[in-house]
Amino acid sequence: MSAAALLGACAAAQAVDAEVDRETHIRLASSVLKIEVLNRGGGYSLGSGVLIDRDEVVTSCHVTRNAQRIHVLQGGLRLAATGQSAQMRRDLCVLRVPGVLGQVVATAPTQSLKAGDAVIAVGYTGGLAPYASAGKVIAKHRHSEGQVIRSSTSFNSGASGGGLFDTQGRLLGILTFRMRGAEGQYFSVPSDWIAPALHAPSAFGPVGPLEGLAFWEATDAAQPPFLQAATLKAQQQWQSLAGLSRRWAHEDPKDGDAFHHLADALEHLGDLEGAEGALTRSALLEPDEPRGWLQLGQLRARMGRLADAGQALLRLRALAAAAAPHATEWADDLARLLDKR
């Protein structure tokens, strides 16, 4: 995916906050702050940040990369950042901001997060006021010893560096970028990456311009395979997607995402047996992920393998009994499909 097709969310589109109840909005907004950056060469850019500890605010490095000075705006105050710990490649920066006030957030690991989990994005979309958007996790993508979260929680210009929260108000990720012209393609880097920025020796340096690019800004071949796959899928280049997915699976045979994309490509190419094999591998690598079992059951039903589709349904029922999000709904969908057969 070219960097032009991916957009950071650090610059206007005001949306109506109609999805998140007022109490939740107020509670989460107390932890999300507006970031103002005076860039080298003049000019300002705006973004968002999340209060993660006393005097420490996390944001996206692409918001601050050209900074001469950084301020956190809070009420009528402009509080200066005195230091910055940057992981530019991961697009995660922690600012030291003495005197900043607000509700420090708790973080939650992304490991137990599943497709279908409810999430809330909060950031300064349009740079005016904190905007909250409710949505669901669509997928997680392994990258750099973590899992980048893709969700349906919309965010736009000014929201970069804002927070992706679970329904308990715990920070799951930092709003980072979106895919141009695509629904459900909003990406957040994981909160698991914050600790290295805080605890590395001599982590904090002076505020100043940063060198390098974030992983999602790289040229096509240098991007993570999940982003390359997203581009090929959007362009319906199924042969190329199959080739990429096979190389990806060979290099990382424990990544179920690779087999999931391979199955998608093979199904569109008419190789249903190959697609079924790839989806089976993906489901076995991620046995607690309901989405994979749903898609496997649907494909097997399409192939007329109703008994095998029933096995996928049983797995969904078991996940539903374990209170897996959306497993009950998806099991009912698959059961209705099988009844029609």
Results as ranks from 00 to 15, higher is better:
Ser2Thr: 13
Ala3Ile: 06
Ala4Thr: 11
Ala5Phe: 14
Ala9Pro: 02
Cys10Asn: 08
Ala11His: 07
Ala13Gln: 07
Ala18Val: 13
Asp21Phe: 10
Arg22Asp: 07
Glu23Gln: 09
Arg27Gln: 12
Ala29Asn: 02
Ala29Thr: 04
Ser30Asn: 10
Leu38Met: 09
Leu38Ala: 15
Gly41Thr: 06
Gly43Ala: 08
Tyr44Gly: 05
Ser48Gly: 10
Asp53Pro: 01
Arg54Ser: 13
Val58Gly: 10
Ser60Asn: 15
Ser60Leu: 01
Ser60His: 04
Val63Gly: 13
Asn66Ser: 11
Asn66Ile: 03
Ala67Gly: 07
Leu73Arg: 11
Gly75His: 02
Gly75Leu: 10
Gly76Tyr: 05
Ala80Phe: 01
Arg90Met: 09
Arg90Asp: 12
Arg96Thr: 12
Val105Asp: 04
Ala106Ser: 13
Thr107Arg: 12
Pro109Gly: 13
Gln111Ala: 15
Leu113Glu: 00
Gly116Asn: 08
Ala118Met: 08
Pro130Trp: 03
Tyr131Ile: 14
Ala132His: 02
Gly135Thr: 07
Ile138Phe: 03
Lys140Ile: 06
Arg142Lys: 13
Arg150Ala: 15
Arg150Met: 15
Ser151Gln: 04
Ser152Pro: 09
Ser157Glu: 05
Gly161Ala: 08
Phe165Tyr: 14
Asp166Gly: 14
Gly169Val: 07
Gly169Cys: 07
Leu175Thr: 11
Phe177Leu: 09
Met179Tyr: 03
Met179Leu: 10
Arg180Tyr: 03
Gly184Tyr: 01
Gly184Ala: 06
Tyr186Leu: 02
Pro190Phe: 08
Asp192Ile: 04
Ile194Tyr: 00
Ala195His: 10
His199Leu: 13
Pro201Glu: 09
Phe204Thr: 09
Phe204Asn: 06
Phe204Gly: 14
Gly205Glu: 03
Leu213Glu: 02
Phe215Pro: 06
Thr219Cys: 05
Ala221Glu: 08
Gln223Ala: 12
Pro224Ser: 09
Pro224Val: 06
Gln235Thr: 07
Gln236Met: 09
Gln237Ile: 03
Trp238Leu: 10
Trp238Ala: 11
Trp238Phe: 10
Ser240Tyr: 00
Ala242Asp: 02
Trp248Ala: 10
Asp252Arg: 15
Phe259Ser: 10
Phe259Leu: 04
His261Trp: 08
Asp264Gly: 04
His268Tyr: 00
Asp271Ser: 05
Gly274Ala: 14
Gly274Tyr: 00
Glu276Phe: 00
Thr280Phe: 03
Arg281Asn: 07
Ala283Leu: 06
Leu284Tyr: 06
Leu285His: 02
Pro290Asp: 08
Pro290Ser: 12
Gly297Tyr: 00
Gln298Thr: 11
Leu299Ser: 11
Leu299Thr: 08
Arg302Thr: 15
Met303Gly: 06
Arg305Thr: 04
Arg305Ala: 15
Gln311Tyr: 00
Ala312Asn: 06
Arg315Ser: 12
Ala320His: 03
Ala320Gly: 13
Ala321Gln: 11
Ala321Lys: 06
Glu329Lys: 13
Asp332Arg: 14
Asp333Lys: 12
Ala335Ile: 04
Arg336Pro: 02
Leu337Ala: 12
Lys340Leu: 09
